[in-house]
Amino acid sequence: MAELLSHVLIAYALFTIASWRLEWLTKRWVAIGMIGALLPDLNRIGMFVDDATIETALGVPFGIDALHTLGGVILLSGIGALVLTEAHRRAFGVLLAGALTHLLTDGLKAYADAEAGAWLYPFTWYRHPTPNLYVSADQSVLLVTGLLAITVFLVDYRSH
């Protein structure tokens, strides 16, 4: 849970900082970007439902782990953009940008084989070397992202 919250806090900080320059990036769009940061972790539904059940429901082959890839978040961002009643293209871009903050942050995690997951699928199976900056279970990551988000919040609050 700490890692999931960290992804949301990172997205909050980045989108809020970007909103200082981009007039259209209101608090509503910051929130949508934060939702985008959650999209890759929808693959966690695999803890409760197996691929065969989803395949039966959809009628097509399906791998739940593909949701935590670039192709998966493009698909999920498209579906999410269709849910909104207006500004579909902007919603797609903001959701995708939020999801990319998640994937890029995960690309810095420590992995046993020192290579990140194949998050660039379906474009390539390449697994880039990772700098092994953090372990996802490390609580200090949540502390750092929490302090970053609080700092950004206070700066944003004082500037308005």
Rank of each mutant, 00 (worst) to 15 (best):
F123L: 15
A37G: 10
W125V: 03
L82I: 00
G107L: 05
G36H: 03
F62K: 06
G63E: 05
G80M: 01
P40C: 03
L76N: 10
I64Q: 01
L39W: 08
L38F: 09
A114Q: 13
L14Q: 10
A137R: 13
V30T: 10
A149I: 01
M1D: 11
L96C: 05
G78D: 04
V49S: 07
A87P: 09
A112C: 02
Y121D: 11
L14N: 05
T124R: 10
A13W: 01
H128N: 04
L96V: 05
M47C: 00
Y157R: 15
A11E: 11
D51S: 03
A112I: 05
L95I: 02
P40F: 01
I64L: 00
L95P: 04
L75H: 07
Y157W: 13
D156S: 08
W125N: 11
I79N: 03
H68F: 00
T145I: 12
Y134A: 02
D51F: 00
L103N: 02
L14S: 14
I10N: 01
E3R: 10
I45N: 00
Y157N: 04
S136G: 02
L120A: 12
T16M: 07
S159T: 04
W24M: 04
T145P: 12
V135F: 07
D50Q: 05
F62L: 06
T16S: 08
G93D: 09
D106T: 00
E115S: 06
W29Y: 14
S77H: 07
R89E: 13
R127I: 02
I54M: 15
D113I: 07
V83R: 00
D156F: 05
V152R: 12
S159G: 01
G71A: 10
I74L: 13
A91Q: 12
Y111C: 07
A99P: 06
L148G: 09
E3T: 08
Y121E: 12
A114P: 11
A81F: 06
L120T: 11
P61N: 05
L58F: 11
L133C: 04
W24F: 12
D50H: 10
A87R: 15
I17E: 11
L70E: 07
M34P: 02
L120P: 09
S136M: 06
V83D: 04
L42Y: 06
D51K: 01
I79A: 08
A99Y: 01
A149P: 09
L42R: 04
A57H: 03
R90C: 10
T85S: 15
E86G: 07
V144E: 02
V94N: 09
T85M: 11
L142C: 12
